[in-house]
Lab assay of single mutants.
Amino acid sequence: MASQGTKRSYEQMETDGERQNATEIRASVGKMIDGIGRFYIQMCTELKLSDYEGRLIQNSLTIERMVLSAFDERRNKYLEEHPSAGKDPKKTGGPIYKRVDRKWMRELVLYDKEEIRRIWRQANNGDDATAGLTHMMIWHSNLNDTTYQRTRALVRTGMDPRMCSLMQGSTLPRRSGAAGAAVKGVGTMVMELIRMIKRGINDRNFWRGENGRKTRSAYERMCNILKGKFQTAAQRAMMDQVRESRNPGNAEIEDLIFLARSALILRGSVAHKSCLPACVYGPAVASGYDFEKEGYSLVGIDPFKLLQNSQVYSLIRPNENPAHKSQLVWMACNSAAFEDLRVLSFIRGTKVSPRGKLSTRGVQIASNENMDAMESSTLELRSRYWAIRTRSGGNTNQQRASAGQISVQPAFSVQRNLPFDKPTIMAAFTGNTEGRTSDMRAEIIRMMEGAKPEEMSFQGRGVFELSDERAANPIVPSFDMSNEGSYFFGDNAEEYDN
């Protein structure tokens, strides 16, 4: 993207840094990872977990959730003011799984939030270390993106479920800051804005008074975040219109849905970061690795190297396929839920299948599930090659597409044709070009129609051997075009429920 120079890199967003050079960025990201790792080690000690239990991804998720809940100030305040039966607002906890007599047992633990905050700050040299908290939120978000298709949420806001490739980060909490905003897809931002506008339509006082002023500035800020994701002048001009509207209503909703559809071809720039579970960072720190000293990046080879040398386990339900569970977590670790499966298959070195073909449910185990038949197995999170994460949407291309997802959002900077089903997408653009945004709409449609099938995206960008740390010898991959490109292809993934 041309304006790259004016933006802070995501590592800076990730670490609240002012302008830093590459070495400083690597050190501050490393410091953040160190903090998460030290916190995780301490929690495993508190909970008396064995090494194996500490490497269980379900335990990692519970521990991450506990610290996120302990620092969720708004919710904590709300819980104190609106006490609900049987919930102690000062405590947080969740299921911890232990191996007892050759069987997995679930144990519900409860801790004072104050105590968890103390352990977290102690692991982070006394700081609140917001960057580390956001990092864990993005890992949870990436896992949700890989596990669930947001059909219901899309339909509720009037969008087409086939636009799911635009929904990265749709389950990120509001408090995820600049680093969170960077990884949100165009569809996620559109959905947040539509929800806001709908509230304004239904509630006369939404934009009024002292609160209304705050609401208005939040609305304009979200519009600017979305505008910054678009790469064409016409899309940005249309966002200006939406932002400046005196009284946002149905016309703005129409414009936003139009823009979301246009992003299936004229893709937005959305950041991709490899955020790993805390149970990967903990053992690495415990083994003596100093992330701050060595430096770390979320968008280069580092996460690949770390996963190459990590042992992570997962509980497996009786009829689940461990290899499929591994694929789910591998995609989440690489922030690749909406990437082209052919690119992923090449990088991973084994075939990556669409969601609907995987015999696996989510990673988390519900409290009512029976533990008797639970097994555990090693997650295979290694890769054959590594590639640089991208934040450009890439230019655009036609490809055989599917009944489910009709476009992709690249996660890796790797040369390819970008699949999208042009006739299906263009069919949504018939007729409606009147109104105050008509010239911009016409211009956007013209650009979409001009998108050429034979153009290559990320020209000359390749993948790298894991021994090639400096990215000196790019390998331009070859793809098996007979395979499906979309992950949520004609899909039956479970729906995400809060």
Rank of each mutant, 00 (worst) to 15 (best):
T15Q: 10
A22L: 12
M32T: 13
D34Q: 02
D34M: 02
G37F: 14
Y52N: 02
I57E: 12
N59W: 07
E64I: 00
S69P: 14
D72S: 03
A85S: 02
K87Y: 15
P89L: 01
K91N: 13
T92P: 03
G93F: 11
G94R: 05
P95D: 09
I96V: 05
E107W: 09
L108F: 15
I116W: 08
W120G: 05
N124K: 12
T134C: 02
T134K: 13
H135I: 07
M136Y: 04
S141C: 14
Y148P: 11
R150P: 07
R162C: 06
M163V: 03
C164V: 15
L166R: 05
P173I: 09
S176N: 06
A181L: 02
V183Y: 07
G185C: 14
G200F: 10
N211C: 13
T215G: 15
E220A: 02
N224F: 06
K227G: 11
M239P: 06
V242S: 04
N250A: 15
I253S: 13
F258E: 10
F258L: 07
S262C: 03
L264G: 14
A271M: 09
H272N: 08
K273S: 09
P277N: 07
C279P: 08
E294C: 00
P303Q: 02
F304Y: 12
L306F: 06
E320A: 08
P322F: 03
M331W: 09
E339Y: 12
D340C: 08
S345P: 10
S353E: 09
P354R: 00
L358G: 05
S359R: 05
R361A: 13
Q364G: 12
S367C: 02
N368W: 12
M371C: 06
E380W: 10
T396G: 04
T396C: 02
A403I: 03
I406K: 15
V414F: 10
T424K: 04
F429S: 08
T433A: 12
R436M: 04
R441I: 11
I444V: 01
M448G: 06
S457K: 07
F458I: 13
V463P: 09
L466C: 00
S467N: 01
S467V: 13
I475W: 07
E484K: 03
D491F: 09
N492E: 12
E495T: 04
Y496M: 12
